[in-house]
């Protein structure tokens, strides 16, 4: 197939950047979207131009590196799918495709389609952990956890930290990401001793990073490649209120 691409090109963080139109040929419908970009990049290199830089690594939908907004939708049109698992059979010959980076103040562009997502790491550093040193753990079966609770924890823990929730949110809010981590530890007794401190610290860091505020559009859930439910945001809200009102540390 033949495609017209409008790709965001930006040399560096300080460069202004703009959308550039390209034509690309010989795309097979069996290719993944990123393989289409590989082929396109090869054609740029052949012309002596610099290839388009984009983040990607595992290409099996789990590492969370890939991060493209395709025709206005993070990770493209397929539900529950990362870009690396999106296939070209989803597109038609002659289609025009807009490819842009995640857009958020908290995710500045580094180059082309690559953004800096270390804000997520800093949120995790603020409290996304259980304080336990290696070696001091009791027997794994000493603490029974109801299957239903473990399943809820796992639903939330499936988050791959890609940032599509932020990219999709009209307000660039990170509530789904933060909610997922808070929810995981909320449904596990191991997470309870530090729950108040955790939620307060993570929300505080999230706010300081310059993410927007959730206004309950649920666009994040629609974009999430792991289909994490906005239940985790409601849980985060409640957990934060409890922590604040109780004054527990």
């Amino acid at each position: 197939m033949h495609l017209t691409l409008h790709v965001w090109r930006q040399k560096s963080a300080n460069d202004k950047g703009r959308l550039v139109q390209y034509e690309v040929d010989n795309i097979s419908s069996d290719m993944s979207f990123l393989e289409m970009l590989d082929v396109f990049n090869e054609s740029l290199i052949a012309k002596g131009e610099e290839p388009v830089a984009f983040d990607h690594d595992c290409r099996e939908g789990i590492c969370g590196a890939c991060s493209l907004v395709i025709n206005g939708i993070p990770h493209g049109p397929d539900e529950g799918t990362t870009v690396c698992q999106l296939h070209m059979r989803r597109f038609k010959d002659g289609d025009t495709i807009y490819i842009e980076p995640w857009r958020a103040k908290a995710f500045p562009v580094i180059r082309d389609l690559i953004v800096d997502r270390t804000a997520f790491d800093r949120i995790q550093q603020a409290g996304g952990f259980i304080t336990i040193n290696t070696g001091g753990a009791p027997d794994a079966n000493a603490l029974p956890i109801a299957k239903t609770e473990a399943d809820l924890a796992m639903d939330a823990a499936a988050c791959i930290g890609c940032g599509a929730c932020v990219a999709a949110c009209p307000n660039a809010s990170a509530m789904l990401f933060v909610g997922a981590k808070v929810s995981q530890f909320l449904h596990l007794p191991q997470g309870h001793p530090e729950r108040a401190r955790r939620v307060k610290a993570m929300v505080e860091q999230m706010d300081a990073e310059g993410f927007g505020n959730c206004t309950n559009h649920y666009e994040c859930m629609a974009a999430c490649p792991k289909e994490i439910d906005v239940r985790v945001i409601a849980e985060l809200n409640l957990e934060f209120m409890k922590a604040k009102i109780s004054g527990r540390e």
């Binding site: 025709n71 939708i73 999709a168 009209p170 559009h217 666009e219 629609a222």
Partner: peptide
């Protein structure tokens, strides 16, 4: 985004 499309 230059090209915006909401799903939800």
């Amino acid at each position: 985004y230059s090209h915006n499309d909401y799903v939800q």
